[in-house]
């Protein structure tokens, strides 16, 4: 197996928040009937995490289950285990109307860390990032400036942002500009 190559080679920036390209991260797109018990069992068994509710992000380390839409999950697994996990899921869902695909190299991931996190994110997306509107553990698919993106808060000072690989450079520059030390806002802090 060839070595995984990050879209930006692990770019990082320190400003209002610490922006760091994360990964490589194994990702498996799973489409199907999320209410189905066999599907739920396959996912929870594979990741060892409970099924997320609507807009939920159940993540522990490199494993996770993200609720993407009413019929789609993004299953996170360690990068090297993705092909095996895909096969395992596909086998568990055989005979069902479901789609399982390894999309590990389709997206770029960024980890944002810092106390100004909510301000930085709020500059880029049409989303209310107030604490009660966007609690930790909730996944929000939206747009960051001109590109589609997803974001969830791991805790109050850490967020995980993902976008398509082809716009990884745009996203990184966007995050850097929003996290520029001269662009302090201080709205959500405190």
């Amino acid at each position: 197996m060839s070595d995984p190559v990050l879209p930006l080679g692990g770019a990082q920036y320190e400003g209002l928040v610490d922006v760091r390209e994360a990964g490589p991260q194994g990702m498996i797109a799973l489409r199907g009937d999320l209410a189905d018990e066999r599907l739920q069992e396959a996912v929870t068994q594979l990741t060892g995490l409970p099924m997320p509710g609507v807009r939920g992000a159940q993540v522990m380390g490199e494993s996770g289950v993200l609720w993407m839409s009413p019929d789609e999950l993004l299953v996170l697994v360690p990068y090297r285990q993705a092909p095996r996990a895909r096969a395992q899921l596909a086998e568990a869902l055989q005979g069902q109307h479901a789609l399982v695909e390894n999309v590990s190299d389709m997206r770029a991931m960024f980890r944002l860390r810092g106390t100004q996190l909510r301000d930085v994110l709020a500059k880029l997306a049409p989303v209310d990032f107030a604490r009660d509107a966007m609690p930790a553990g909730e996944l929000r698919r939206t747009r960051f400036a001109q590109v589609a993106a997803g974001v969830w808060l791991v805790d109050d000072t850490t967020a995980q942002v993902f976008c398509f690989r082809s716009v990884a450079d745009y996203m990184f520059k966007l995050l850097c500009a929003a996290a520029d030390p001269d662009a302090f806002v201080g709205f959500h802090a405190g």
């Binding site: 609507v54 807009r55 839409s69 009413p70 049409p126 989303v127 209310d128 929000r140 698919r141 939206t142 747009r143």
Partner: peptide, 11 residues
């Protein structure tokens, strides 16, 4: 009505 978010026009 599917994911429940308040989606503004640009989304």
């Amino acid at each position: 009505p599917y994911c429940g978010v308040q989606a503004d026009e640009t989304e």
